[in-house]
């Protein structure tokens, strides 16, 4: 799909400074919306799954993910389906989670997972300490997350939901492709832990090291905790990729076909 190409080859055009927590995808959504409005992209045949929802928060509460998704994305695009979201008000939450996994499977699995992370490196609501083999389930929110979310609930800690339903780390890893957007200095430590150290259940983003087709899109600020050589290395990957692609294009222009040229695999 065209979006893939756009997201993969030129992600930086979608990046702008933004607040932490739960807001990382907004610029990406804005970009996708403009593509839909220009008629370059359609969601008519796309099924979306959301990765988490608070437990016990009314669906139309201003801070629910239902509200967020409708306000920031669904109301502006041309989906035919309402999108699949976890129901945090289901009577049987465990059953709701199991069915969610089943629905994902029924559609043939997730093609592209798009997300952000928390300051503690959580992906979806897989807080530090989550099993890396986890599936969709009920999750208790970490104290940091509750504190950070309090601003959405009139700074009333007691009003912040304590639990959420979330897809698991293994659910994320099952996706055919993962794109994670990490921006701002506040996420810098999490980024360093996730890519410069080993796979670690205390920084669940690090599980992406096990994924064959994962892309982490970062801005300059988010690299603040990385070693200089790490940053240089990743920049060189991009540069080399560009050079290889240019060479490939030149060869193609000359009519020389070589399947291996231009491939990073």
């Amino acid at each position: 799909m065209q979006t893939y190409q756009r997201l993969r080859t030129n992600p930086r055009q979608a990046l702008r400074p933004r607040p932490p927590y739960g807001s990382s995808p907004i610029p990406t959504y804005k970009h996708l919306i403009s593509l839909v409005q220009e008629g370059k992209l359609s969601f008519k045949n796309v099924v979306t799954f959301n990765m988490d929802e608070y437990v016990g928060l009314p669906r139309d509460h201003t801070e629910s993910y239902h509200t967020f998704m409708f306000r920031e994305f669904f109301s502006h695009i041309d989906t035919r389906l309402a999108g699949e979201l976890l129901n945090g008000n289901a009577k049987n939450l465990i059953e709701e989670c199991n069915q969610y996994e089943a629905r994902i499977k029924a559609f043939g699995g997730i093609e592209l997972f798009l997300g952000g992370i928390g300051e503690d490196g959580h992906i979806a609501f897989n807080e530090p300490g989550s099993s890396l083999a986890s599936r969709t389930r009920i999750k208790t929110l970490a104290y940091d997350t509750i504190l950070a979310n309090a601003r959405f609930f009139n700074d009333d800690i007691a009003a912040v939901p304590r639990m959420a339903l979330t897809v698991g780390v293994a659910t994320v890893l099952d996706s055919r492709e993962v794109v994670v957007v990490v921006t701002g200095q506040r996420k810098a430590l999490a980024l360093s832990k996730a890519i410069e150290e080993g796979v670690n259940h205390l920084w669940t983003l690090s599980a992406l090291q096990m994924h064959p087709w994962a892309l982490i899109v970062v801005d300059e600020d988010a690299t603040a905790e990385l070693h200089v050589k790490t940053v240089k290395y990743f920049k060189s990957i991009e540069r080399v990729q560009d050079e290889v692609e240019a060479m490939h294009a030149a060869l193609t222009a000359q009519g020389i076909e070589d399947d291996h040229v231009g491939s990073m695999e």
Binding site: R59, D60, H66, T67, F70, R71, F74, S75, L81, A82, L85
Partner: peptide, 22 residues
Amino acid sequence: DLWIDERRGVILDAQRTFYLRK
């Protein structure tokens, strides 16, 4: 955006219409 129902002549809760009436 504002969503209305022209047959019933009322203003809609857009989000509710989207998720519940699909």
